[in-house]
Amino acid sequence: MVRFAEVGLRYGESAPEVLRDLSFVLEPGSFHWLLGASGAGKTSLLRLMHLAARATRGEVEVLGVALSRTRRAALPALRRRVGVVYQDFRLLPHLPVFDNVALPLRVAGRAPHQIRADVTEILRWVGLAPKADAMPAALSGGEQQRVAIARAVVMRPALLVADEPTGNLDIPQARRVLSLLREMHRLGTTVVVATHAETLVAEYPAASLRLDAGRLVSHG
């Protein structure tokens, strides 16, 4: 479950608030679109959800953990339960596909045989098993985003957030990426996808959070 209560966020003490008075609850296993124009605060909201930023006021609760009362040292364990997909993929360019996907498992200290089995399975799921030894630069944008999704879900996260995951992709690639995210939702993961691609939203109707100038203007 994700719960926001009167949440505000500003970057710097004298900077204006980029998020204001956000209050909502995302039930476990739900799928939400996060909508709004560029600069509305979608990325900032997702940063709060995947613990890349901490609210300057209010309370954020992620997977049952109230972050205002959580020590910094306890956050890494919570981050391992949240998968993140970025618009610019953020794959490590010096690692082949296999090792990029294996990163979360290695960070969590999993055994090598388990890493091999899990990564092979997840690469097969995203349709990239034959590219396990390829370097990211040798892949198309769609393939790189599927690698990023594989990395985000290989730990079977309870919450998956995606920030404009189709922003750099053409329509067929975008549909394939979205189908993977929907598949994760069907498997029980809470999924939040930020986008301003209204055509994709129309193709996959689901609940949505709509932001405007840092405020939540609709939820449902």
Binding site: R80, R90, L92
Partner: peptide
């Protein structure tokens, strides 16, 4: 810097 940020985001201590 970017690789460190990715590892941090993946839950590295």
């Amino acid at each position: 810097r970017d690789a460190i940020a990715v590892l941090h985001a993946l839950g590295a201590t």
